[in-house]
């Protein structure tokens, strides 16, 4: 009798260990997928999702009052279908996309949202205004200097959208505390530099330019591929957008050149940013 009980409890322990292992592996896989680490993405899968018409908005359990609007082209790249208040998003490779995101969020209808642009001394504010950012509701802190952690904290307290550039004075601990503060104040941080612990990473690449010839024409538009990696989005998603002058990112599906790269292994390098 006692033997049977012992065997039973041993089997139970074995089962629970397996269950724990499986849960841990699942968690690890999710984490890796969300940060994009060692994620092998094939052209086929992304093409399939992009080619089969508009991707249904990802299931969102975020209450709508916590969501800020996103430019049309990148809505499918984030798991919430909008820009979730309290989150930190890293946008690598294109400042135009960063500004377009900030403009869309700060122009949320019916809200008086203010935007702070920090540690970006060389940002083209005329381009930001062109992208739709209302400069009357924008404050610029070009050089926060060694007091950057305190400055960033104060700005998160008062501003709804904080756009951050390269800021070497921030340590990882500062970033974590900024993340807590973001959640508490329900502000949004858009980082143009690497932000470990970002809720989502948008990588902009494969640009092509239109309108410029050989000594004639004028730059009229550009296209770029944006890849989104986010927690809660199993597969990274990719979208090809056309960027107009007015900062909207119109999705145009995938161009032919991309689909030739079928089966190509795309190793993401998180450090390639800025």
């Amino acid at each position: 009798m006692r033997e049977a009980v012992r065997q039973e409890s041993a089997r139970e322990r074995e089962r629970s260990r397996e269950a724990r292992l499986a849960a841990a592996q699942r968690a690890l896989a999710t984490a890796e997928a969300s940060t994009g680490l060692r994620q092998r993405l094939t052209g086929v899968t992304t093409l399939a999702s992009a080619a089969s018409g508009p991707v249904p908005p990802p299931s969102s359990t975020v209450p709508p009052e916590l969501l800020l609007p996103l430019p049309a082209g990148v809505e499918t790249l984030l798991p919430w279908g909008g820009l979730r208040r309290g989150s930190a998003i890293q946008v690598s490779g294109s400042r135009s996309v960063l500004l377009a995101l900030a403009a869309a969020a700060a122009n949320a209808p019916g809200l008086d949202l203010w935007c702070a642009v920090v540690a970006m001394p060389d940002v083209g504010l005329a381009a930001a205004a062109e992208a739709g950012l209302d400069l009357n509701r924008t404050v610029v802190v070009p050089k926060p200097g060694p007091d950057a952690p305190a400055v960033l904290g104060a700005l998160i307290d008062g501003f709804d959208v904080v756009v951050l550039g390269r800021c070497p004075a921030l340590t990882d601990a500062d970033r974590r505390s900024a993340g807590h503060r973001l959640r508490h104040r329900e502000a949004v941080l858009l980082s143009g530099d690497v932000w470990p612990g970002a809720h989502a990473v948008l990588e902009v690449g494969e640009r092509s330019w239109f309108g410029v010839g050989a000594g004639d024409g004028v730059l009229t538009g550009r296209e770029a591929t944006i890849t989104g990696y986010a927690r809660g989005l199993g597969q990274p998603r990719q979208v090809r957008v056309r960027m107009g002058a007015d900062g909207d990112l119109a999705p145009i599906g995938v161009d032919a050149r991309l689909s030739q790269g079928e089966g190509e292994i795309h190793e993401l390098d998180l450090a390639r940013a800025g």
Binding site: S94, R95, S96, L98, L99, P121, D122, V123, G124, A126, A127, A128, E130, P142, V218, L219, T220, G221, R222, M243, G244, A245
Partner: peptide, 10 residues
Amino acid sequence: PSPLPATVPT
């Protein structure tokens, strides 16, 4: 003419 550059060196 627009689009304007998003980076203007200081």
